[in-house]
Design a binder for these strands. Structure first.
Lengths: 250, 250
DNA sequence: GCTTGTGAAACGTTTCACAGCC
DNA sequence: GGCTGTGAAACGTTTCACAAGC
């Protein structure tokens, strides 16, 4: 993230609204919610309905969609399929993007084996590991290659997005090599900071960080309630429609 | 979280500064950076050094730390070990928190097998799956139990934080059950919205969402380089840290 | 009627810049 | 001299509230 937002006053292509980062981060949720609504047979959805399905407020949703040159109809709502198309287009998902995965250990193996990406715009099209014993193994029919082959494969497949799932100590070297091969977006699962040129976007996912944030909130909740642990059930709005609390994403 | 932060009447326990959410989200990074510095033999670090190690600006770091009733010394910097202690305390990491994991499929299996949490304040202390064929399997020495046993185990181990790594269609039911057992923080890897009572915190990690956000930036970068440069200031408003490789393929 | 689209206000976060202290 | 701590300004995001339109 954190690309320079070059000065452009709206010079971006006809296609290209200059979206606030917070909006960009929510579009994928809207997309998921829209697909769910489409599957449930809705062909139109109000901002209220869509917002509920996506876990945001309707005002926020409308404001977000307004940046895409909105196409809702007043008094009615948004056409579900049309909106799916528009968001997929804005996110650049129409071309199923090939993604490289480096590090086929515990986590990497699981990511490579997960089948759910195809429907969401991606496919892993190259797997790499530094461990010769893993090379040649097939995951979901795809062979694991040695990291030494990174450059030719990434060039051949025209890959620009890569996932790093190596141990932390290897991540920076891998990132350097990926960048040298032309990769410009990296999703980093290694618990370390990556230093990359400023035209490269990096997003980081760290499970321990997420748990630590939850831990803070636990800690706070515990310190707010007088009793450490009520024995009986205090008041549980469990079944039914508690308004969902949605924590902030990374 | 979007819930009313009940007018924080609590005089904030002696322990408890009322931190901005953005700050809370960064504390884990500071912690990681501090551990790295400690390991490298530093016992004091300036805000500049620490900020660099954590990937933020020094002003932001100082402001964040100031919420913790800062303990840096002017002209010198922050005492590394002391700061580690303080942040761990604020995050509630002193007690190694037990965490439950539900769903030992592809991803869940990888999470359970990852050994890196112990050093960061957590341990998985109960694994569950709905598939009888998985029950009894041991991962890292821990047995996989059937979800039917959720309630007694979670009560016995006093678990309040859980990770959901089930398929999306099962996630809500699992969440409901966890909440009924007293869990108040959930980390959700299933690509769906969870509806929970408002005293429960949910954080969501969705790999496809991360890739879609990167895809947007790819798309934007591509459309910017493809377009003729609009008239205006010369090229490349680059700035910042010249660190890193400066390679662009193609 | 009902729902979108949007200025304007409110809020939260980051950055600036420097006073205060070692 | 160097570095922290922090008000105040700048910026970004969310919420409000209502006019515009179906």
């Amino acid at each position: 993230m954190s690309q320079q937002r070059s000065a452009h006053g709206n010079a971006a292509g006809p296609d290209f609204p200059d979206l606030p980062e917070a909006t960009v981060a929510r579009l994928p949720e809207y997309l998921r919610a829209l697909h769910a609504l489409a599957e449930a047979g809705h062909d139109v959805a109000s901002s209220e309905a869509l917002a509920t399905a996506a876990g945001v407020t309707s005002a926020k949703l409308r404001k977000d969609l307004s940046y895409l040159r909105s196409n809702g109809t007043r008094g009615v709502g948004y056409e579900v399929l049309g909106l799916i198309d528009k968001i997929e287009h804005v996110l650049g998902l129409n071309q199923h993007r090939p993604v490289a995965l480096v590090g086929v250990g515990n986590l990497g193996h699981a990511l490579a084996g997960y089948g759910g990406f195809g429907s969401r715009g991606f496919r892993f099209s190259a797997l790499f590991d530094a461990d010769q014993r893993r090379v040649g193994e097939r995951i979901n029919g795809m062979p694991v290659r040695h990291v030494a082959d990174l450059a030719p494969v990434i060039a051949a497949e025209r890959i620009v997005i890569a996932v790093i799932a190596t141990p932390a100590h290897a991540a920076q070297a891998v990132a350097d090599e990926l960048v040298a091969c032309g990769v410009t977006s990296i999703l980093n699962f290694a618990p370390c900071l990556l230093s990359v040129p400023e035209n490269v976007d990096v997003r980081k996912v760290d499970l321990a960080v997420e748990l630590q944030i939850l831990s803070f909130h636990e800690h706070r909740k515990a310190s707010l309630t007088a009793l450490p642990r009520p024995l009986g059930p205090p008041a549980r709005p469990v079944a039914g429609h508690g308004l969902g609390v949605e924590a902030v994403g990374s």
